[in-house]
Design a protein around this nucleic acid. Structure first.
Length: 309
DNA sequence: CGCTTTTGACCCGCGC
DNA sequence: GCGCGGGTCAAAAGCG
């Protein structure tokens, strides 16, 4: 993936366009130095200027976010292409071994060919993203099994890296879930938790969360179905990160139905704009992200101004 | 007191 | 038909 560096360098270039934000307190101080204005007027002016700066900054940040999204989607498509290429190469061998092994594979295991994502849940890290597209012709035992998978609701998997010591089965995806069951399954000593969407009673989306048997620091969330309601990220209670089953942060990053191949470039501009806004609202709620962004911007500012000692 | 979570029991599909 | 295992139900417990 040599292009990754290129993409990120363009990102950092965009950061250099970032706002030179002066702190409100310093602004206030500079205005107060003018002797012939009343304090109230000063205050109004300061607030107005601050508001203007804020909105300009907001616009710039939105632009930056858009470029980030563009880079992200291009990276994503490159990754998918690369994975498809490698899958194509491995396809014949994999399908051969699959057909040689005992065919007894229960339905949950057959979901592995559906879409999957990796989210790093630790606050200090950015999102890792891995998607396994449905392999078009790799499974040779297609006939019946394949039909069964297709008849199921949209299924996707999200991998969330958590602290290994954290025993909770909570995946922050922006939706509100109600737990209705927990079970220890045969192939994994860690219990699997079953959740229903609690945002709307009519919403039939279900979620299963289980720690990976190989790496217990990874939570595997399996989503079934599609939400029949809008994004809940604007809801105030979705902002609390420690609300038991309800969680926030990142909405499932394009929890992709397995049958479609979602590519952001194919989406109409208004959907892209909504995605950008969702990402913006999610990211700006994350203090870690804003802190990281601020340090990146200030670092870039220092880089660009060598006159300072 | 009401809502949520827990957990054992039950249901159902699948393979033998 | 039987057993196994995943998924769901619902009463009890927990919590604010």
């Amino acid at each position: 993936m040599e292009s990754t560096g290129m993409e990120f360098s363009s990102l950092s270039l965009d950061l250099s366009v970032g706002p030179l934000r002066s702190s409100p307190s310093s602004m206030r101080g500079s205005v107060k130095e003018e002797p012939n204005k009343s304090p109230i007027k000063d205050e109004v002016e300061v607030l107005r200027a601050e508001l203007n700066r804020m909105s300009e900054e907001n616009e710039r940040l939105t632009e930056m976010l858009q470029s980030m999204c563009a880079s992200y989607s291009s990276l994503q498509s490159q990754l998918i292409e690369l994975m498809n290429e490698s899958n194509w190469e491995k396809g014949s061998a994999a399908s051969a071994s699959a057909s040689a092994s005992p065919v007894r594979k229960r339905k949950s295991e057959s979901l592995d060919t559906n879409s999957a994502h990796m989210i790093n849940n630790t606050p200090n890290s950015m999102i890792n993203f891995v998607r396994h597209q449905t392999e078009p012709a790799s499974s040779s035992d297609n006939s019946l099994k394949h039909l069964k998978v297709d008849s199921r609701p949209n299924i996707s998997k999200v991998y969330v890296r958590t602290n290994a010591s954290d025993s909770s089965l909570i995946v922050k995806d922006g939706y509100q879930w109600r737990k209705y069951g927990q079970k220890v399954t045969r192939d994994n000593p860690c219990p699997r938790a079953y959740f229903r969407c609690a945002f709307a009673p009519a919403c039939q989306v279900k979620k299963k969360v289980q720690r990976s048997a190989e790496d217990q620091s990874i939570l595997v969330a399996t989503y079934e179905g599609e939400h029949t309601h809008g994004q809940p990220t604007s809801r105030p209670e979705a902002n609390g990160a420690n609300n038991g089953s309800s969680s926030t942060a990142l909405p499932p990053i394009q929890v992709a139905p397995a049958k479609k191949k979602p590519r952001q470039g194919d989406e109409p501009p208004e959907i892209q704009w909504r995605l950008v806004q969702q990402m913006a609202s999610s990211l700006t709620k994350d203090p870690e992200f804003t802190a990281a962004l601020a340090s990146a911007i200030s670092g870039k500012m220092l880089e660009l101004s060598p006159s300072r000692s």
